[in-house]
Design a protein around this nucleic acid. Structure first.
Lengths: 95, 95
DNA sequence: CTTATATTTGTCAAATATTGGCAAGTCAAA
DNA sequence: TTTGACTTGCCAATATTTGACAAATATAAG
């Protein structure tokens, strides 16, 4: 599974000197679940991005972008045609 | 929902002068389901691509690419940050 | 070593989403 | 008004995702 998102929020949490148990309740999930999200084992709910961005002091759009990119990555992960597919996607989107 | 894939396979089917009821059994689904797939209301199973490519006389990789692009499109459909996310994805993938 | 705190792992039931088919519908041509 | 092609609505079966909890592990301090 892709995990740029999880890696990023772990970095941010550590830079902000926050513990899992401090962040998790803030976004209304339990600690183990946040741990799994950071390690890419689970997916953060899209609706939770704003709160998370707030406590981690990162721009919400930037976090959303990372989240979206990871979701797309999951689609093409391991696909030999991944690059072709992105090219195609870019083409499709310009319409 | 995105639907370049469905649009394409409908085009191909028509160019090959095939009816839904001819193609559907070939890929082992019923006619209404294929209709829905062509109109983007349902997703074709990835495993069915090879057979479909064969009957529609299109390169399998090309069809797979379209399929993957559509799946990614579904992730960013309606997202204001869609383009940013693609940029990010491209960045992530180069690693 | 023993305790305390942080994180991870495993498991599970509940909730949610996806699947594929069928029956019935529309629509156009003859 | 019958026929053939396609579409729509709906349902039950299946699969996937979700989130929590208990327990395990890890790290650090006394």
């Amino acid at each position: 599974m892709s995990n740029h998102f999880g890696y990023k929020i772990r970095q941010l949490r550590e830079h902000n000197n926050l513990l899992l148990r401090q962040v998790a309740p803030f976004i209304d999930i339990d600690t183990p679940l946040l741990s799994k999200i950071e390690r890419g084992e689970r997916v953060l709910k899209k609706e939770q991005i704003p709160l998370l961005a707030k406590i981690l002091k990162i721009d919400e759009d930037e976090l959303t972008t990372l989240w979206l990119a990871d979701q797309m990555y999951n689609v093409i992960d391991g696909e030999p045609l991944a690059n072709e597919a992105i090219k195609q996607l870019t083409k499709n989107i310009k319409k």
